[in-house]
């Protein structure tokens, strides 16, 4: 258990813990008892160790030099002589930079495709009236019943017949416009009050002008959510690129990592360095954009 020796920063001056004050706002933060607060922070820190600890251990392993034993009976979290050698070893063993580039290409296609495709379709489905809209919506909803793994084989057959087997475009293509994102963007456009739109219609604005001037400024939140989801989804994906790609030159980072650990090395330091190369960029993306991310998730943009 992690011990809390000092009260957490920001804790208010000692409140009489025993005084049974009338609790007007029982769970309010001003009246929370000091003991409860300490207990909460202790549990939070314990959970932090559990959720983040393994990443720290991996980072630490990746920075340990060949001279330092990584199997000591008392685990050392701080490397005695930190070094980036293992990262160089990764680059010597597999073309890790080109794998990262491949992952980035796939993610970029997914981000742009979903941002454009889902926005246009979401707007049309939410704000325009036309024949076939209900049918289209029903079909889109219907596709959500299928887990991606069910169609992955025939997806591969399609990509192969397009001549895109073993290419990055083939990896990116099936999820370039994801139906879930179309629905999410539609929901975002539907949340814009009709009155705002009607004013534009009376002024003679075209559908395109309404999308640019009324629609887009009001759906930025959802748009950022689907692009973050698209990026993370593409960057992290493993099964689909594993099926599509055969030439090791074309691997994305996740497939390349498995290749590294499966075929080339059993040196935990080098594998640890490899995992950090795949992990750190996504953490940076996430840390930068997490504000939008959590807001979007709270709005109900939860993937099933």
């Amino acid at each position: 258990m992690t011990q809390l020796t000092t009260p957490p920063a920001g804790a208010p001056a000692k409140t009489p813990a025993s005084a049974p004050k009338r609790r007007r706002r029982g769970s309010g933060f001003g009246t929370m008892r000091r003991r409860e607060k300490l207990l909460r922070y202790a549990l939070l820190l314990l959970a932090l160790v559990v959720t983040v600890g393994p990443f720290v251990w991996q980072l630490s392993t990746s920075l340990k030099g060949a001279g330092e034993s990584i199997y000591t009976s008392t685990p050392q979290f701080i490397p005695s002589d930190p070094t980036f050698d293992n990262y160089l070893r990764v680059a010597e063993t597999i073309p890790v930079l080109s794998y990262a580039k491949n992952s980035l290409i796939v993610a970029a296609i997914a981000v742009i495709g979903n941002a454009v495709g889902a926005t246009l379709a979401g707007f049309a489905l939410a704000k325009l009236r036309f024949r076939g809209r209900t049918l289209f919506l029903a079909l889109v909803l219907g596709t959500l019943v299928l887990p991606g793994e069910v169609t992955i084989i025939s997806q591969y057959v399609t990509v192969r017949s397009l001549g895109l087997a073993d290419t990055l475009v083939g990896v990116a293509l099936p999820t370039t416009v994801a139906m879930l994102n179309v629905l999410l963007m539609r929901a975002a456009f539907m949340a814009i009050p009709d009155e705002m739109d009607e004013a534009a219609v009376i002024d003679g604005a075209s559908a395109w002008q309404r999308l640019i001037h009324v629609g887009l400024p009001n759906v930025r939140g959802m748009l950022s959510v689907i692009t973050i989801f698209a990026f993370i989804g593409a960057w992290d994906d493993f099964l689909w690129p594993l099926i599509v790609l055969t030439d090791p030159q074309n691997y994305t980072l996740t497939v390349g990592l498995q290749y590294l650990s499966g075929a080339f090395t059993s040196n935990p330091r080098v594998i640890a360095a490899g995992t950090m190369i795949a992990f750190i960029p996504i953490v940076i993306v996430f840390a930068t954009l997490q504000r939008f991310f959590f807001r979007g998730v709270e709005e109900g943009a939860i993937k099933g």
Binding site: L48, Q58, W235, D236, L253, I271, V283, Q290
Partner: peptide, 22 residues
């Protein structure tokens, strides 16, 4: 804490599985 607890979700399952292996 919220962001930290969410980190395992955004990591690729491959990365996490290799961490687990170690």
């Amino acid at each position: 804490f919220r962001t930290a607890f969410y980190t395992p979700v955004i990591a690729s399952a491959v990365v996490v599985a290799l961490i687990w292996t170690w």
